[in-house]
Amino acid sequence: MSESRPIYLDYHSTTPVDPRVASKMLYYMTTAFGNASSIDHTYGDEAEEAVSQAAIHIANLVGSSPKEIIFTSGATESINLVIQGSIYTDVITKNKHIIAVSPVEHKAVLDTCYALAKKGLAEIIKLQIDSKGRLDLNHLKQVCDKGISLLCVMAANNEIGNIYPIQEIGQIAKNCHIPFLCDASQAVGKIPINFQEYGITYLAISAHKLYGTKGSGALAVRKKYHLEPIIFGGSHQKGIRSGTLNVPGIVGLGEACRMRQLEMEEDEKAISSKRDKLQNLLLKKIPGLIINGDPTSRLAGNLHISIPDIPNSAVIARVRSKLAISTGAACSSGVETPSHVLQALALPNNVIEGALRIGIGKFTTDKEINQAAEILSTAISQIRQAMCFKI
């Protein structure tokens, strides 16, 4: 990291593109730039082959078949495709479309569900969680036993970093014959996931969360499940998602998945060690600091903290030229409303208002960890002194 740029610790928002991924993408931008749907010349053939190879790399990482991979612009589109595309049958049969959803899901899930509910097209059931963000599996099973149209539970939370028992959840859904949408955008490439074995019906993936590029993603769709398209214009990708394929982005996603399969285990151990070091330094330097979420089951790079009675906006204002961290999800950046995730945990207002999300990744150095601890602790000390002076 250049001395003139802030230390980057917002890996949950987006990751830097791995130079090896960028290098491979460049070839498909400048040399093999063909349209994968152009079958009349070798430019199209090469692009089509690259897309097929990318599907293999993605499938290998998440435990699906390459034929189950649909390419999208990212996890948000993948999620919308499932939630909106799955209501068709219930609309035709006039059955009530019921979606059970975790209250700490990404806004891409929640806002889409609420939009359908507002139109009278779906009924939403919220699953139960505790103050650490852990899902009540007994309640989830009770909901599934009663019969629902779709179950939505993420693999890992984008704010507090909780990892959810997707294999167990998938088995419950499978036993109840309920389609299961898993937003795995924060989890793929960080923790093992097996689409087939875990009983997942739909798996959403985003390239820019695993060292690929923005604007590229995928959706794994289990065989024999049908989705109505929400984008029309060419019947591409088995008629599920039309539009010219983003070949460089798809190649980048495939290469990123290939690299994560090779390096994930070693990288995540190193990242976890750096996270623990930063956590210990901050706990030592900042009295009253709280760790949010479930510390026994969280992403290796996640550190979600609160300093009660110290507004997070005040901290960001002091550190933003030196340190890139966030007050919450990137999808809500700049929005003055409190985090829906922390509100769902029923945390006190002063804890919510003092919350900061720190995301560590494979390019974070030990030196940056030490510097970040000093920057944050100094800023908070200065804020506390200023607040005491005002009083």
Rank of each mutant, 00 (worst) to 15 (best):
6 P>M: 07
7 I>Q: 12
10 D>W: 08
14 T>I: 09
28 Y>G: 00
30 T>H: 09
34 G>N: 07
39 I>N: 11
46 E>H: 11
47 A>I: 04
55 A>T: 07
56 I>M: 06
60 N>G: 09
61 L>A: 03
63 G>T: 00
69 I>K: 08
74 G>Q: 08
76 T>P: 02
80 N>V: 08
84 Q>E: 14
85 G>Q: 11
91 V>F: 12
91 V>H: 10
100 A>V: 09
102 S>M: 10
106 H>M: 04
110 L>M: 12
114 Y>F: 12
120 G>E: 06
122 A>Y: 11
126 K>C: 04
129 I>N: 08
133 G>F: 10
133 G>V: 02
133 G>Q: 01
134 R>W: 03
134 R>E: 03
138 N>C: 06
140 L>M: 12
146 K>A: 14
154 M>L: 11
157 N>Q: 09
158 N>C: 00
161 G>T: 01
161 G>P: 00
162 N>Y: 00
174 K>S: 10
180 F>S: 01
181 L>T: 07
185 S>F: 00
190 K>G: 03
190 K>R: 10
196 Q>M: 10
198 Y>G: 03
203 L>T: 01
213 T>P: 04
228 E>Q: 10
228 E>L: 13
228 E>K: 11
236 H>W: 05
239 G>P: 13
240 I>K: 07
245 L>G: 04
252 G>D: 02
256 A>G: 04
257 C>Q: 09
260 R>P: 03
263 E>Y: 11
264 M>Y: 02
268 E>N: 01
268 E>L: 02
271 I>L: 00
274 K>H: 14
275 R>G: 01
278 L>H: 15
280 N>H: 13
280 N>A: 14
287 P>Y: 06
292 N>D: 05
304 H>V: 03
308 P>W: 00
310 I>N: 07
311 P>I: 05
316 I>T: 13
317 A>W: 08
325 I>N: 02
327 T>V: 13
337 T>A: 14
341 V>E: 02
353 E>Q: 15
363 F>G: 06
377 S>T: 05
384 R>F: 08
387 M>S: 15
388 C>E: 14
390 K>D: 10
390 K>A: 08
391 I>N: 15
